[in-house]
């Protein structure tokens, strides 16, 4: 599914500001962007750039000091309680740490079924069927539902976390460094899985990463953050081929090349 850029955005961040503690620079300072249906917007930055804080504000784990997060007509930053929880159905998140993002004492089937339990009227049998279907879609087997998270590898746990996140077909998926804790050969598997799910379900995606090479093929547009600000935002190709900001150029050129060779001294 190609992103429908003219359509109204599924998610819009407006001038988000977050300051931790009283003094000093805000961690996030006036960040704005919009995500079109089916589009993947990558937010790239180094540690301390504010990209993870931005992700957390998008999904409501942190309340912004100022600004709004528009999911359709609703400002998530202004919602509370039951109404906020209901809206979460459309906005899910995949975390960096596949080891920690699943409750260690809960069977993975129950973890995946939890959003269905909260947001749908499906009965227990229907939820089980849906969990089996989701497990298959992320490349696992239905019988894995009865196991505990510790019985799976990092890549498999990330598949489970993705199954849980897409269980209720959210309109937006926020991925915070979803592959940076994984082995190289597994990273590409998970990126393929995310790209495939996006094709089939058409969610908009905000993909947070420190690694420009990882987002190269999955991102339609890329935003570069530094020191809490969005210093550049543009189509992916343009960011790689013709970066406007000096910092973006530094980031692009810092990615090690497989073609580099050490001089033999």
């Amino acid at each position: 599914m190609t992103p429908v850029l003219e359509a109204p955005p599924v998610l819009e961040a407006r001038c988000l500001v977050k300051r931790f503690g009283r003094a000093g620079r805000p961690a996030v300072n006036g960040v704005s962007f919009a995500v079109a249906p089916g589009e993947t917007l990558a937010i790239v930055g180094e540690s301390g750039s504010g990209k993870s804080t931005t992700a957390r504000m998008l999904v409501g784990l942190i309340r912004p000091d100022a600004g709004s997060v528009l999911l359709g007509p609703d400002d998530l930053a202004a919602l509370r309680g039951r109404r906020l929880r209901a809206r979460r159905r459309d906005l899910q998140m995949v975390f960096q740490d596949p080891l920690g993002s699943l409750n260690p004492v809960m069977r993975v089937g129950d973890s995946i079924a939890e959003p269905l339990l909260l947001h749908t009227d499906l009965d227990a049998a229907a939820r089980r069927d849906r969990v089996a279907d989701l497990l298959t879609r992320v490349g696992l087997r239905p019988e894995h539902a009865d196991r505990l998270p510790r019985e799976f590898s990092g890549g498999q746990r990330q598949r489970i976390a993705i199954a849980r996140a897409v269980a209720c077909s959210p309109r937006v998926l926020v991925c915070d460094e979803p592959v940076s804790a994984l082995d190289v050969s597994t990273q590409a598997q998970i990126l393929d899985l995310l790209a495939g799910l996006r094709e089939s379900t058409g969610f908009g995606c905000v993909f947070i990463s420190h690694d420009l090479s990882v987002v190269r093929l999955i991102a339609d547009r890329i935003g570069v953050m530094r020191g809490g600000e969005l210093v550049e935002l543009g189509p992916a190709e343009q960011i790689y081929q013709d970066p406007a900001h000096e910092y973006t150029r530094a980031l692009v050129s810092a990615v090690p090349s497989l073609h580099a060779r050490r001089k033999v001294t």
Binding site: V59, G100, L102
Partner: peptide, 14 residues
């Protein structure tokens, strides 16, 4: 502070 609690919040748990 564990990620699975954050995940539960984002899922929409009360």
């Amino acid at each position: 502070g564990q990620t699975y609690v954050h995940a539960a919040i984002v899922t929409g748990c009360s």
